[in-house]
Design a protein around this nucleic acid. Structure first.
Lengths: 106, 106
DNA sequence: CATTAATATTCGCTATTGCTAATATAATAG
DNA sequence: CTATTATATTAGCAATAGCGAATATTAATG
């Protein structure tokens, strides 16, 4: 494997912390399907408004998601599509049966 | 995208927490190249023995790594190779220049 | 058995995280 | 301007995480 410079490991570990939370990971997964506004995320997750807002702020400050104001609503979207690959890898680990691996030697 | 059951999101977020730390992520990356014993990890990371041991224990309890005793040494290895894919996705996000994507439409 | 090397565990402390309740801001409607 | 809706921010607290120092355990060696 490639050597990763120390400061990149620092960045990456901080990025991981930003999604290493049940609610924040749920939000990330939801946003993989496209942008959503806060109250849509509230309904989808069942989270309290203040709590959700704080988590969204944290993810935004860590560069995971971006926001865009439209009228009185704020839409959030994933900043880098590569997070989709990471979530996919996570699925392979925690719900392999969902990934339905067609061909692979054990 | 596929819907992920809530309990799987819980598991996955806990798994992420287990690697969302600079030292633990470093250990994960090191172990991607193969098993290592504790003092090798100490040298490679520069971490204090007690501290490293605590982090290894945490990762082991979370099922990220496994250990095997050989003599008075304990070797650690990654429990699921799919963590390599996840680290790869992380590299795409935090050090894209290292991934040297050959062909890809922007 | 005594010593040393490798690793794990416990303790005490500080720092960080996560949550709720309350309050603030901003846009829109009337 | 007032009220309402959508979202953000702040404060205060409980829970968790992370660290070093000290101690315990386990295996090898003499």
């Amino acid at each position: 494997m490639e050597e990763i410079p120390k400061d990149k490991v620092t960045d990456a570990s901080q990025g991981l912390r930003a999604i290493a939370h049940e609610l924040r990971l749920s939000v990330l997964c939801l946003l993989l399907d496209g942008p959503m506004c806060v109250h849509e995320l509230m309904e989808a997750t069942g989270a309290a408004q203040s709590n959700l807002s704080q988590h969204l702020t944290k993810m935004r400050l860590m560069g995971i998601i971006k926001n865009e104001k439209r009228g009185q609503q704020v839409f959030y979207r994933i900043a880098n599509p590569a997070w989709g690959d990471l979530v996919h890898a996570l699925k392979q680990i925690y719900c392999p049966e969902m990934c339905a691996i067609s061909g692979g030697d054990v």
